[in-house]
Simulated scan of single mutants.
Amino acid sequence: MAGDGANRHSLLEDAQGIAYGATMAAFGIVILTHLGLVTGQTAGLAVLISYTTGWSFGAVFFVINLPFYWIGYRRMGGAFVAKTFAAVALMSAGTMILPRLVSFDQLHPGAGAVLFGFVSGAALLALFRHGASLGGVGIVALYLQDKTGFRAGWTQLLFDVGVFLLALGLRDVQTVAWSFLGALVLNMVIAINHRRDRYIAT
């Protein structure tokens, strides 16, 4: 039934869905960072900070998201913020744990970029379906749309352009090109499979 997708799940179903989404998102980041690639949105900014400082992606991503929860609470409500906080915390922890459990003997950047897009797209779809997100820029984009009428999609696009321009100053052109492929696949997965009239999206 359209419109109630975010509310019809039991607590156990939500917990499983958020755990799945956060774990798959963490695995996507493991693929991404193994290849030295970048991505868009808040995760992309956290990846670049991690590359340039040597700080853990998980820690950076967790801290970057903290200011967005108040906006998320005002825009989406307490349940959304609680679920999103759990998803961000689980993903951040997962990116620290999974590299100790998973390694890649051979992974072509093109294949890795596509796999990142598929895995991360599936992760976000699961989170959206259970009324959560990975926080960040998407929340601000929706808030600005409510307040000013400026389309959320444009805000997210402008942010991504800034991230990739910054990446060009830090990574080689080929790496950024493969990264763009991964981001394109991710966004295509969301665009084709996600219904905004059914599930919360950020």
Rank of each mutant, 00 (worst) to 15 (best):
V114T: 05
M1R: 13
V140G: 06
P67W: 01
S50H: 10
L142H: 12
W154R: 15
I29Q: 13
N193V: 07
L158M: 14
L181H: 00
A111D: 09
G72F: 03
F159K: 02
W55V: 14
L115W: 04
D146Y: 02
L45M: 04
G138A: 10
A126T: 12
G44N: 11
V63C: 04
I49D: 07
F62G: 05
A191G: 11
Q106G: 02
I31H: 10
G36K: 06
D14K: 14
A183K: 01
R75M: 00
L107S: 01
I139G: 00
Q145L: 04
G110D: 07
A25I: 11
L165I: 13
T155H: 09
L168P: 04
A111V: 15
L124M: 15
V119F: 13
G117E: 11
F164S: 01
L181Y: 02
S92R: 08
V176C: 05
F128M: 11
A46H: 05
G5P: 00
G72Q: 03
A152W: 06
F180H: 00
L101G: 05
L170C: 11
Y51S: 15
L124K: 08
G138H: 09
V185G: 01
G110L: 13
V161N: 01
I29E: 14
F85L: 12
T23E: 14
G131N: 11
I192L: 13
F128W: 13
G117V: 13
T53R: 08
V81L: 04
R100N: 13
G112M: 03
A167V: 06
L184I: 10
G135M: 11
R151G: 06
A191M: 11
P99C: 02
D160T: 01
G135S: 12
V185A: 08
V140M: 10
G110V: 04
I29N: 10
A152I: 10
E13W: 15
Y51G: 13
A25R: 07
A46D: 09
G54I: 08
G149Y: 02
L144K: 02
P109K: 03
